[in-house]
Amino acid sequence: MSELGTIIHKAGNPIFPLLNLPTYTGSKDTTSLVGVLTRIVASTRPSTMNQSKELAYSSNAITLEEQLYNSRANCKLKIASVAMHLNQDWRTRFFMQLDNLLDINEWDEDDQPVTDDSFSTLLRLLLSIRPKRRPGLGATSNGHIIATWTSGKNRLTIECLPGDQIRWIVFSSIDDYKESAVGQTSLDRITDVLGPYQPEQWFDR
């Protein structure tokens, strides 16, 4: 079981219905970490949600607001599981981006919230390339998270697909000369495929 998996198995915590995990009783350290994670998740909870709505997490009656809550919570839990690789300011600002992206007041009701599998790919992408600049975030209608970096007119767009697959799009414009490229590859190939496009212009500034 992973460290995060161990932590979140603590019984009686409100995040468990989201994760559908079996009961676990842990050490004092584990209890403390669960408290931290619980506060992270609680900070994303819509103020309009009441107790009856919270109970809905344990049933199949999931509204869009609840789906977005689950999506935000799951994304933040995944980030927390690799917190040691990301500095606190980076994480805090990234959480705010997720809150804005998955805000019920902004979400198109016909779109599927960001899926676990897609977000896992994004997180592994970020840990792989270690960009100094966080990406801008967007989402597709079918629940794939999109990471973007923009340098002037040069755009890098990455759609995170399940299973460590990514769809990448480069659009560059230098004076009147324009160049674009699109491809799909696996995560372990991303630095190779972006190499010719000087990716430091997006990641290092």
Binding site: Q97, D103, W107, G136, G138, A139, S141, T148, R155, T157
Partner: peptide, 23 residues
């Protein structure tokens, strides 16, 4: 274009449109 399909910088400033907006 809904917010999720707008292009943002790392501080959520809106700077453009994503391809997904026209899909």
């Amino acid at each position: 274009i809904p917010f999720a399909k707008l292009r943002k910088d790392e501080n959520d400033n809106i700077i453009g449109v994503l391809f997904e907006a026209f899909k």
